[in-house]
């Protein structure tokens, strides 16, 4: 008796993680019936029992938020999805082993760019995450990644780029021409885990110089 091919019901079951927001997503092939329902379970690597994720049982959407359930940075996790289609056909697939510390991507930082007459100040705001310590303290990216640093660039003209960087949050590009447009980009870097965020971009114009008017 040949096992029925149900791969159309369920494909690409994986974790997607950004700033420790951990979402399990999956696909199905176009031929699969729209009334297919999905149920999600998860567990820590090394444990026997699969736990059903409340709120993701017999759903029709193709994603499930497991941020809370996979929030221990020192643990490794698995999730699995079971799809049940028309006529009771079903398929179950598991994610790869998931470590949020290693797999999460970093979103662009939140930055305030403040133009002055001959300088532009940039203040990077701490990025909070859904991760909490045992006593309920909410962690920022800086708390989690000890070697986190910021890289800032200011495009002065087609050929000249100014650079600043470090672990502090306040920076100032100085010696600029008044009343001129500049493009700033700011990235987060975590060298040991080879993580780099997409850039935050700000377009700012220095203030006019009114000293002699």
């Amino acid at each position: 008796h040949l096992a029925e091919d149900t791969s159309d019901l369920l494909q690409h079951v994986k974790f997607q993680s950004s700033n420790f927001e951990n979402i399990v997503t999956w696909d199905s092939s176009p031929e699969s019936a729209p009334d297919t329902v999905y149920s999600v379970e998860y567990k820590k690597y090394g444990e026997r029992e699969w736990l059903a994720k409340e709120g993701c049982q017999r759903i029709t959407r193709k994603s499930c938020n497991l941020t809370v359930e996979t929030g221990n940075l020192m643990e490794l996790y698995y999730a699995r999805v079971t799809a049940v289609g028309a006529g009771g056909r079903s398929a179950t697939k598991m994610t790869d082993r998931f470590s949020s510390l290693h797999h999460t991507t970093i979103k662009p930082p939140n930055v305030t760019c403040i133009p002055k007459v001959r300088s532009i100040q940039m203040i990077v705001h701490p990025t909070s995450t859904p991760i909490h310590t045992g006593d309920g303290h909410q962690l920022t990216l800086e708390d989690i990644f000890h070697d986190l640093s910021y890289h800032l660039e200011l495009q002065v003209n087609h050929t000249y780029l100014m650079h600043l960087g470090g672990k502090q949050r306040e920076y100032e590009f100085i010696g600029l021409t008044p009343d001129t447009e500049f493009l700033g980009t700011i990235r987060i870097f975590v060298p040991t885990l080879l993580k780099e965020s997409a850039p935050y971009v700000c377009q700012v114009k220095t203030l006019p110089d009114r000293t002699w008017t």
């Binding site: 567990k43 690597y45 090394g46 444990e47 026997r48 020192m74 490794l76 698995y78 598991m94 790869d96 082993r97």
Partner: peptide
């Protein structure tokens, strides 16, 4: 990825906490 994918005993962790 290739080595962990070959390990389908998800209920056992050797280097336990």
């Amino acid at each position: 990825d290739i080595v962990q994918a070959k390990d389908n005993i998800t209920s056992v962790r050797l280097l336990r906490k």
